[in-house]
């Protein structure tokens, strides 16, 4: 009897495990199919290429040009990555090559807390500090006048948000490089810095590219924090002091009220699908590159 009930329990928990896994594996496929089906109506009416390259966004007149949103997203994302990546590389080199263990033990919680802060907190901080800083200090320095709600503000806030993310991966990358390599370089007379420059960075290069790619994906999808500081003006930005309107902000700002206008929800779903596609692509390529370079070592 006891044996039988154990057997039943064994079988039923196996059953639940398999079901859970199947649900998990089906979820993104369901997501992609659902988004695609919902964006079909607008794709049947206008060509995908036209939607991407048109800059007119007038839902009432049935004009859905995604160019302002896509360019805003690209500006904010790449600017933030340009700020974040050098900081992360330098910090990762310092923490793995120069710093004492104690310093790393102090820095790890700092990095983890930065990674754990909710995006709305970053947004509040952006509104409190970054936006006034740009309108009162940075813009006047260049002889410009802005409210501070700009692409630049979005990029600064976003760069701080992706730093812990990229940094954690980079620390991992530098740690997996075998010590014999750097020791060999040191033993033939190279200085510590030469070893870092010619051996470590060269070995870590694929890892650095992957970490950056993952950072791009993370930054591209970030919604609330960027939305709060970027200004949300539908216009193709031409400078970092212009306001922008990234794709996630478009979805977040308009989703609740779109049902009464024809094609509007389809257009927003297409925005979500584009977001999904780009983020997945960057993630996929970066993860593949990491796996490739791990195999080579």
């Amino acid at each position: 009897m006891r044996f039988l009930s154990r057997k039943i329990r064994d079988k039923s928990s196996l059953f639940w495990m398999v079901i859970s896994l199947v649900i998990l594996l089906l979820m993104p496929i369901l997501l992609a199919v659902g988004l695609y089906l919902k964006s079909l109506p607008i794709l049947q009416e206008q060509s995908f290429w036209d939607l991407l390259t048109e800059s007119d966004w007038k839902p009432m007149q049935g004009k859905f040009g995604f160019l302002p949103f896509i360019t805003s997203s690209l500006w904010v994302t790449f600017l933030s990555i340009i700020i974040a990546t050098p900081v992360c590389i330098l910090t990762a080199i310092y923490l793995t090559q120069y710093a004492k263990k104690r310093v790393l033990a102090i820095m790890q919680p700092i990095i983890d807390i930065l990674a754990g802060l909710p995006s709305v907190i970053y947004g509040v901080w952006g509104v409190l500090i970054v936006v006034p800083f740009i309108s009162k200090t940075v813009a006047p320095f260049f002889g410009l006048q802005t409210s501070g709600y700009t692409i630049l503000a979005g990029a600064i806030v976003l760069s701080i948000m992706v730093i812990p993310f990229i940094l954690n991966i980079l620390i991992e990358v530098f740690r997996t490089i075998p010590e014999e390599l750097t020791e060999a370089s040191l033993s033939v007379g190279a200085t510590k810095w030469e070893t870092i420059k010619y051996v470590l960075l060269k070995k870590a290069f694929p890892g650095i590219i992957s970490a950056t790619g993952l950072g791009v994906a993370r930054a591209f999808g970030e919604t609330i924090a960027v939305l709060m500081v970027v200004g949300n003006v539908v216009k193709v930005p031409t400078s970092v002091f212009d306001s922008g309107y990234p794709l996630p902000a478009l979805i977040a700002n308009n989703y609740g009220e779109m049902l009464s206008i024809p094609m509007y929800d389809s257009a927003l779903m297409l925005a979500a699908l584009i977001l999904f596609g780009i983020v997945l692509l960057f993630n996929f390529l970066s993860r593949m590159a990491i796996i490739r370079s791990e195999k080579n070592q």
Binding site: A272, V279, N283
Partner: peptide, 13 residues
């Protein structure tokens, strides 16, 4: 890969 999908996509879906 799933970890990277932005939460706004889940919300909209």
């Amino acid at each position: 890969l799933l970890w990277g999908i932005p939460s706004i996509v889940y919300g909209a879906f």
